[in-house]
Design a protein around this nucleic acid. Structure first.
Length: 479
RNA sequence: GGCCCUAUCGUCUAACGGUUAGGACAUCGGGUUUUCAAUCCGGUAAUCAGGGUUCGAUUCCCUGUAGGGUCACCA
């Protein structure tokens, strides 16, 4: 970076999210992105999206677009990144190979990098031997005494200058340490010319002036390698904020694609709100220090603090996600609520009055589809199927019920068609129940007659939606 | 096996070394709603074990146990 840039960036927080394009994003990756994004936002800093595509074998076509779509859905936006560019472009590591070579050359010049003379098979034998002896594999124990000149055809390794233990400070975990066996002559540039993660991310973080690196716990044990590179280059490392793992639903293993971690876009497809997803993920491993649970994105940016990120692994709790989503649905404007619900409703029942009936019964949009599947909304546009037994309420006799319904029909018929509202219907039923002294025996049969269900929205609103004619028709039928 | 990280209700979590160990989800029980749903109120439920340090440990230290991570020409 230039001197001018250094001055400008002196106090500016720069974070990044650096996924590799090997498939979809699951909640683990998204949470890492979210925390880095929140921290940048909170500090009026810069958030960078960088694609770490240095492994051609594992790369999956279309995953960059998929990652971008996932982040876009959640509203996690970046100031610099592959699709929008920025002062440090390119944001694809595969397009920055010269840069890694430049840094590699610096290390070569210092005598701190050398070509690996062994074949992959030979190194494999070293590793197997170490494993068999139940010892950690350390390449440096096989470091050649004389180094050839690097021609680019062999992998380039870092010559660890000093084998020692490391202690460092982590913004989340506090003091961390690792023994000397965490240090090794790891590969900087692979034989295909691409850098390894271990090297590339350091070069990029330096070049992109990243101040805070957030990543999962799995990187703790390789941190000494990173620190030794920074030392070799004479550059101060960034702040590290290590995130606790998210566990699979069994609560044991770290969440991974293998154990059924879902593509976050599936949550979109299931009808979760992006702000609810953000809210949920933010709370998985972080808490505000008070008892708030429901946050808008802005509130989250305001409240977020690295120091309140937890240390232990957390399990996904879908029930809590449903609850949070429901809370966010409640906060939606009428307009937003209507648009979303109508998307899931068949045309026949896209009516305003049905919105509250549905919205208070669901925790996510796909629940509407489930309701329809279960036939819980059928009665709004189809005649229900009746069964005699179900029309009878508890100890009432068939005769009583019939008389009541007849009575109700007479009373309802007196209401003007244009003022056939739930209030009027309620009044009517009240009258009948006063006359007979029974309420359940009135309400239940009417509910059943109108809906064909014994658990349904209240019969008054159903009647109103169906209208006078249809209501009377259905009551007659039930008789 | 080496190195490292973690440990509070079923789950997510709170608690400057002094609290009747708090909240939320789930669950259970009530109240309202003449019914569902929603809502309100209440209950059950936790400091992994053993040693220290201390007047006093959920909290600090050690050991054990359990879980996790890592030891790639993957990130």
């Amino acid at each position: 970076m230039s001197e001018k840039e250094q001055v400008e960036n002196k106090n500016k927080v720069v974070t990044r999210f650096a996924p590799s394009p090997t498939g979809f994003m699951h909640v683990g990756g998204i949470r890492t992105a979210l925390y880095a994004w929140l921290w940048a936002k909170k500090n009026n800093g810069t958030f960078i999206l960088r694609i770490e595509d240095t492994d051609k074998e594992r790369e999956v076509r279309g995953s960059i677009e998929h990652i971008i779509e996932s982040l876009n859905w959640l509203g996690i936006n970046w100031h610099e990144g592959p699709n929008i560019g920025g002062p440090h472009a390119s944001y694809l590591q595969s397009e920055r190979l010269d840069l890694y070579k430049k840094y590699a050359q610096i290390l070569i010049n210092k005598g701190l990098a050398y070509p690996d003379p062994y074949t992959e098979e030979e190194v494999g034998v070293f590793r197997d031997t170490a494993e068999l002896a139940k010892k950690p594999f350390l390449y440096r124990e096989h470091r050649p005494e004389v180094f050839d000149k690097w021609d680019g055809a062999k992998p380039l390794r870092f010559k660890t200058p000093e084998i020692k233990s490391y202690k460092w400070n982590d913004l989340v975990y506090g003091n961390l340490s690792a023994g000397p066996e965490a240090l090794d002559d790891f590969i900087l540039i692979k034989s295909d010319g691409y850098p390894t993660y271990n090297f590339a991310h350091i070069v990029d973080d330096i070049e992109m002036c990243v101040t805070h690196v957030m990543r999962g716990q799995e990187f703790i044990s390789s941190t000494p390698k990173f620190l030794s590179i920074y030392e070799a280059l004479g550059i101060k490392p960034p702040f590290y904020a290590t995130l606790p793992p998210i566990m699979g639903s069994d609560g044991k293993k770290k969440l991974g694609k293998r154990d059924g971690a879902k593509d976050v876009l599936e949550y979109r497809n299931e009808g979760y709100l992006p702000e609810a997803m953000i809210n949920f993920l933010a709370l998985l491993g972080w808490n505000p220090g008070d008892e708030r649970e429901i946050f808008t994105v802005d509130e989250l940016i305001e409240a977020f603090d690295i120091s309140r990120i937890g240390h232990s692994g957390a399990q996904m709790n879908l029930e809590k996600l449903d609850w949070i989503n429901k809370e966010h649905i409640k906060k939606l404007s009428k307009e937003e609520l209507r648009n979303n619900i109508f998307k899931y409703l068949p045309d026949e029942i896209k009516i305003e009055k049905i919105i509250p009936i549905i919205s208070e019964r669901i925790s996510k949009w796909s629940d509407i589809t489930e309701m329809i599947k279960r036939g819980e909304l059928d009665f709004f546009y189809k005649e229900p199927i009746y069964s005699k037994e179900k029309l009878i309420y508890k100890d009432s006799t068939q005769e009583e019920i019939s008389n009541n319904i007849k009575n109700i029909i007479l009373k309802l018929d007196e209401i003007d068609e244009n003022s056939f509202s739930k209030e009027k219907v309620k009044e009517c039923l009240n009258l009948v129940s006063q006359e007979t002294g029974k309420s359940g025996a009135i309400l239940h049969p009417v509910r059943f007659a109108l809906s064909g269900l014994d658990r349904s929205p209240d019969p008054f609103i159903i009647a109103e939606i169906l209208g006078k004619n249809e209501t009377l028709l259905r009551l007659q039928k039930a008789l």
